[in-house]
Design a binder for these strands. Structure first.
Length: 423
RNA sequence: GGAGAGAUGGCAGAGUGGUCGAUUGCGGCGGUCUUGAAAACCGUUGACUGUUAAAGGUCCGGGGGUUCGAAUCCCUCUCUCUCCGCCA
């Protein structure tokens, strides 16, 4: 959520930045400013009347104590009008504040100056491409066929016990999952991220804090009985660890990593492009999260991007890095890099990581602050990234590493899988 | 699921109608002392809003009510804890 004070002081800039995100309802900005003026004016009047009423109440107390009952009663006769006014102004203030909040929630985060203009994924900027695309033999199989051939994943069994998008990993397929998770966690730890194991279900306040709620409500599984949401990413519980927290400047940056399963309803996305592991309702992911000082959060973003790329390099997967254009970015991000691996059998890029700086968009909702060098409260910046999401990594590994003998496990994973080949 | 207790500042824990934004202790910060540190002693230490700065206003889990005045009384919701039951 944007800060009203910033909008108030930087109207032109806000409009200009929103345009990069192709945000159409620019009139909302002026509505917010208008409501904020209204809010402050109402607050001022309310404060004035409250001050009078407070001092009268104090006087009455004093008079009662000193036995001057008549004088006290005289003052009491005047309090009725204040009371009414306080109530009326208070009601109005509540309405205005609510309206202001509703409008504010509709404004997306402002994109960083480096964000390219654009509308569709085709407008994303390819920052770099790394590694060469393997040339597979003519009879190369897509991962969903490899998974069946080598008995790694049973999609139909998943359909039976749950539904589409909930695969059952079996045999070496299950071990490969476990190996990747352990490997990613170890690498994150080496990079200074402290591991946590958070809950997989969160309450409404957490969903709001990291901006999944209210707008993306339909994308999360909801447990009606307990009013809890299944997490779509570890970003939600891990970032919310710092909700309502005031850090010291020395505490920054805070670095956490977490492995969790992630649950996404993915309502309305069915078809050939979601086959196999390409898009699931439940999947495994190691997430890295940082709370950073605003002065260096973009350096932190680059470090996180480098960490993710390091993983892809060690796994020897060809990948590219995209800087998302204004139109393709998420509502709450200020700058996002997507990492995509080349899935050789499908002949397409698969997104395996998304690394974002949210600046103060989340921390404003989270009330995540730190005391700066001047001793003043300041909102921290939050960032997160997948490092990495498993299914598409597995898809790419299977497809790219298929040989006549079987599937070759990348060297760095062998200590974890304890086998070199899937045959 | 049944029964009970509770929710106050970073933590612990006072406070049953006015002088309470809130005693005190711990912790934090600053200082004295010390070669340095510890101990001891002294001081200081909530957030939000608002203003050039003040003043002022709001906040004692959330919401509502009684009252001139509520942390304190009433209603309601939520959450937490304890015991019993069930159970990995």
């Amino acid at each position: 959520m944007l800060q009203v004070s910033y909008i108030r002081d930087n109207r032109e800039k806000v409009l200009e930045r929103l345009a990069v995100k192709n945000f159409k309802q620019s009139e909302l900005v002026d509505e917010v400013i208008q409501l904020d003026n209204d809010r402050r004016q109402t607050q001022n009047r309310l404060d004035g009347v409250s001050a009078e009423a407070n001092s009268a109440a104090k006087q009455i107390g004093e008079l009662m104590r000193t036995g001057k009952k008549d004088e006290a009663e005289a003052i009491k006769t005047k309090t009725g009008a204040w009371k009414e006014e306080i109530r009326a102004l208070g009601d109005k203030l509540a309405v205005v504040e609510d309206e202001l909040q509703q409008k504010l929630l509709l404004l997306p985060n402002l994109p960083h100056v480096s964000v390219p203009k654009g509308i569709t994924p085709e407008d994303n900027e390819v920052v770099l491409e790394h590694g060469s695309k393997p040339n597979l033999p003519a009879n190369a199989l897509p991962h969903w066929e490899l998974a069946v051939k080598y008995k790694l994943i049973d999609f139909e069994l998943g359909v039976k016990i749950t539904g589409a998008g909930f695969p059952v990993y079996i045999g070496k397929g299950a071990k490969l999952q476990r190996a990747l998770i352990a490997y990613f966690l170890d690498e994150a730890e080496k990079a200074g991220f402290a591991e946590v194991i958070p809950p997989l279900v969160v309450n409404e306040a957490s969903g709001f804090g990291t901006t999944q709620l209210p707008d993306k409500e339909g994308q999360m599984y909801y447990i009606n009985e307990d009013k809890l949401y299944l997490i779509p990413t570890a970003e939600v519980p891990v970032t919310n660890l710092y909700r309502d927290v005031i850090l010291k400047a020395d505490d920054l940056p805070v670095k956490n990593c977490a492995y969790t399963q992630c649950f996404r309803r993915e309502a309305g996305s069915y078809g050939a492009h979601v086959r196999g592991l390409n898009r699931l309702h439940q999947f495994d992911k190691v997430e890295i999260v940082q709370v950073a000082h605003p002065d260096n959060s973009y350096d932190v973003l680059e470090q996180m991007s480098a960490h993710v790329q390091g993983l892809l390099q060690k796994l020897q997967l060809p990948y590219r890095v995209l800087r998302l254009c204004g139109g393709d970015m998420s509502f709450s991000s200020a700058l996002t890099y997507d990492m995509e691996t080349w899935s050789a059998a499908q002949q397409r890029w698969l997104e395996v990581s998304s690394v974002s700086n949210f600046e103060t968009f989340q921390s404003n909702r989270l009330k995540l602050r730190f005391r700066n060098a001047e001793g003043k409260m300041q909102l921290a910046h939050t960032l997160n990234g997948s490092a990495l999401a498993l299914p598409r990594i597995v898809a790419t590994l299977l497809e790219n590493n298929q040989t006549g003998r079987g599937i070759k496990i990348p060297e760095v994973l062998v200590p974890y899988t304890k086998f070199e080949w899937i045959e």
